[in-house]
Computed example of a mutant assay.
Amino acid sequence: MRQSRIAACVSSLLLSAVCTLTGTAPAQAAPRAAATGYVALGDSYSSGVGAGGYFASSGDCLRSSRAYPALWAASHPRASFSFTACNGARTSDVMEHQLGPLNTRTGLVSVTAGGSDSGFGHVMTTCVLRGNTACLAAVAEARTYMDSTLPRDLDRLYTSIRRKAPAAHVVVLGYPHLYKVHGTCTAGLADTSRSALNNAVDHLNTVTAKRAADHGYAFADVRSAFRDHEICSPSPWVRSVSLLAPVESYHPTSLGQSRGYLPVFTRTA
């Protein structure tokens, strides 16, 4: 009789039952702390270049108080918020310099990456300074990179994020079209160049979305949010060439961050 009572007490199938031998219930494991921290990774589209209001402490990374990560964190208090996105960051830069805050307590991660790797800065400079033929050639070169090299780079980054933050919901955000073709602009790039640039953005988003899905990450497409707010639209949320602040050229304005990126991220987060 005593042996059967002991066996019933320790049986893994009866852990939730009262132990009749001691008159007490078996001890319950301490609840696991919820993963609530938010870490914002990525390039200039996440740091907020073009939106102004840069944190002095961010230096050349140009992290903005008006960028979608800072705006989202301000209205969604969590245990912690780490903002490591940086102007010009490639996937390798994100891996080497931005993943430090990720850990088992990280519950949400946002990231934009791939535009710098694909050389969009060089492409835009070429298009502005060297004309239509050179622009189309630069776009074609960027697309080749997106097909041949970028998927591997994104895989390495996304794998590193999951390794360091296994409980996190990861949102990969895309890029908006730069131009409204046949829009209000009366000078500047030819419409063939503008169309080619938009098509390159589409291709970049397609590659990025595929890699994100293969890693189980959500992809947030911002193109619809920016529709009719591209350069050459009556109310642009993307900056054109800026002689006073060249680094801000071809980046979302504060409205692009608050009305373009933020609502899309909020729905996906």
Rank of each mutant, 00 (worst) to 15 (best):
E96G: 12
L71F: 05
T268A: 15
C135K: 05
H203C: 07
T208N: 00
T268R: 14
A7M: 12
C135D: 11
A167G: 10
G216S: 13
Q98E: 15
Y175I: 05
L136Y: 02
A220L: 11
C86H: 01
C185P: 11
A73L: 08
K164S: 15
D214C: 01
L14K: 15
L255T: 05
V123A: 03
A134M: 03
F55G: 03
L108N: 01
A27N: 05
P252R: 02
C19Q: 12
A33I: 07
C127H: 04
S242M: 11
T112I: 05
Q98T: 08
A196V: 03
F81P: 01
S75V: 04
L129Q: 14
Q257V: 00
S195G: 06
G53L: 06
W72N: 00
V109E: 02
D60T: 12
K164R: 15
P69V: 04
G52F: 06
T20H: 07
M1Y: 07
A79L: 06
D43S: 10
T206M: 13
T36S: 14
A209M: 13
C86D: 00
G52D: 00
A269M: 14
V123L: 14
I231S: 04
L244N: 08
V94F: 05
A196Y: 02
Y175T: 01
S148G: 01
V222W: 02
R78A: 12
V170L: 06
S233P: 14
G107C: 09
C19A: 11
L102A: 09
